[in-house]
Design a protein around this nucleic acid. Structure first.
Lengths: 122, 122
DNA sequence: TAACTGTACTAATATTAATAATACAGTTGA
DNA sequence: TCAACTGTATTATTAATATTAGTACAGTTA
């Protein structure tokens, strides 16, 4: 479920956070389902439990999960999170379009590859 | 010309590399014009000359500049670099579009913000 | 009550960016 | 010629931070 890329320069806990965000936003992990425990996931990934803990703290801070002492960590409802994520994607798209324009790229040239990705038929 | 952002988590030399890439690609620095010397730029930015050296080595490796011992470092011809940069931007756009689609975003919704950025008239 | 859970804390280690201090070689202009 | 610039190279040290290690405590569950 979680894979660590040691060539990735970002810290491990950040990779874990991002991966769970993805799984939660895509509903692979359903609301209220339980995440692996701090210790068991650390075992699976052969890393320190503290690193997992740090990732879970961050996920909780961002609203992706909630933790109950003695019971475990669970996936939050994600409707609001999906909306937030979509906004972030749009923000990135705007930034990228701005850069493209600054480098003299034509609107058609830029949009063409996007339409291709989405598929021609709307 | 160059500004260091200490809140940026990326290393200083990487910020410098990126900034010069931008200045060169946008033709703010013209081909064959001379870059500030390793030592003088280090003085200006109040950082160590080795950090600048590292940035210049990287810029030379990527083809953005060429260095001549005893003379200085100079901007390369940039036509090829601009093409490469445009390809990179398009690659990013495709990746982002893919993510947007994965999160169930509508094509129109995604393209709308881009069109707005470029301006309605083509 | 044993075996799980999360949570908290301190200390040690590893990695890497950045600094510091030199040294050497080539260029330039007075 | 030579002082004052350039780039280049090397080694050592410092600083910052991610990660590990170890331990402890509190709540839950079968």
């Amino acid at each position: 479920m979680i894979v660590i890329d040691y060539r990735d320069r970002r810290p491990i806990y950040e990779q874990i956070v991002e991966r769970f965000q993805e799984l939660i936003l895509k509903n692979v992990l359903e609301p209220d389902s339980q995440l692996p425990s701090v210790r068991s996931l650390a075992m699976d990934l052969s890393i320190n439990p503290n690193t997992i803990q740090r990732a879970y703290v961050e996920l909780e801070r961002q609203g992706y999960i909630y933790s109950v002492q003695g019971k475990g960590s669970f996936v939050s409802e994600n409707e609001r999170l999906v909306l937030k994520k979509k906004e972030e994607i749009l923000d990135e798209a705007v930034k990228l379009a701005k850069v493209a324009r600054e480098f003299g790229m034509k609107k058609e040239e830029f949009i063409r590859v996007i339409i291709d990705e989405f598929g021609e038929v709307s």
